[in-house]
């Protein structure tokens, strides 16, 4: 167990390092920031002074160290567009993204897992067919397009929910469904195949032979054991839900980090984009790591492998 976790932790560290290096290199590849900050009449002396102030005159590894130290202090620099610290811009929006991500996650579990169980129990039945169609659409439809279609039908044509924004309580419904659908598909498929495997196992057959009622077999004997694959996936899920919110937030004008990242992309606001990428990566890696711990706790095979 410890070896497993240490190994996962090392990967977390290396991932964070890799992302930080990419961000650092790309910030430098964008050109010398001094040419943006100074006008054409700046003297050589001003140029050098600014370089010293920004730390650009130092060797690269020192610049990288400065960059990392700043990040640890929560200093991501100034937003070019909004002219205020990036950390403030980000902290205003984190909550919206977490809210949407968690809602979509819960939604995908609540719909996907039971549907997966039911479609495995009644193979080939109506529910199974419905589940297959739902999963197929979730896997194949571009979520941004799905979101646009939802807005067109449920907000513009039918007027059931607001088309965008986050003002009313029901504005979360459409983005939640859009974002969650992909993961309904994943949960459903994983749950269904895991259930089919378990229902075919010897101990379920024994329980059947003993005359245990079907309901107990399904929910007590099979369901609990079949939960492991979807659970493992849930961690990766939670992470990609958070980052997958980029297009969804954009489509629904949901004021979260995803929308912020896209706006930063369009206005070439590198410091903001860099901050969002760091925060997103942290969330992503942290949630995957937490699930690894949970997973090792639940499934003894991982612990002793």
């Amino acid at each position: 167990m410890q070896r497993f976790l240490v190994r996962r932790f090392i990967i977390v560290i290396i991932t964070l390092f890799a992302v930080s290096v990419i961000i650092f290199i790309m910030a430098r590849a964008g050109g010398d920031p001094r040419s943006m900050l100074l006008d054409d009449y700046a003297t050589e002396e001003q140029w050098d002074d600014l370089g010293k102030a920004l730390g650009i005159d130092r060797p690269y590894y020192q610049q990288y160290a400065i960059f990392i130290a700043d990040v640890f202090r929560g200093d991501f620099g100034q937003s070019i567009k909004e002219r205020r610290p990036v950390i403030n811009v980000i902290s205003e929006r984190v909550w919206a993204t977490l809210q949407l991500g968690l809602a979509a996650f819960v939604f995908s579990v609540v719909i996907g897992i039971p549907l997966g169980v039911l479609s495995s129990v009644r193979r080939g039945g109506m529910l199974d067919m419905t589940g297959k169609v739902v999963a197929l659409i979730g896997q194949s439809a571009p979520s941004f397009w799905l979101g646009i279609m939802f807005i067109f039908w449920f907000a513009v044509k039918l007027g059931w929910v607001p088309p965008s924004g986050r003002q009313e309580w029901n504005s979360i419904i459409l983005p939640m469904v859009t974002l969650g659908w992909v993961f309904i598909a994943a949960n459903l498929r994983l749950m269904r195949s895991a259930m089919l495997d378990v229902l075919d196992s010897e101990y379920v057959k024994l329980a059947r032979a003993k005359g245990v009622p079907n309901r107990v077999i399904i929910w007590k004997h099979a369901f609990r054991n079949a939960l492991i694959p979807p659970l493992t996936f849930a961690g990766v899920n939670l992470g990609s839900l958070i980052t997958g919110s980029l297009t969804t937030e954009l489509v629904f004008a949901w004021p979260g980090l995803g929308q912020l990242a896209v706006q930063a992309l369009w206005s070439f606001d590198y410091p903001v984009l860099q901050g969002v990428v760091i925060v997103f990566t942290l969330m992503y890696v942290a949630s995957a790591f937490l699930v690894d711990i949970l997973y090792a706790y639940i499934d003894p095979r991982v612990r002793y492998a």
Binding site: M26, T243, F268, Q274, F280, T281, Y284, A288
Partner: peptide, 14 residues
């Protein structure tokens, strides 16, 4: 475990 879409955005901006 890299959030690659975000990395793509960073690359495009710079």
């Amino acid at each position: 475990s890299l959030p690659l879409i975000l990395v793509a955005l960073v690359l495009v901006v710079s």
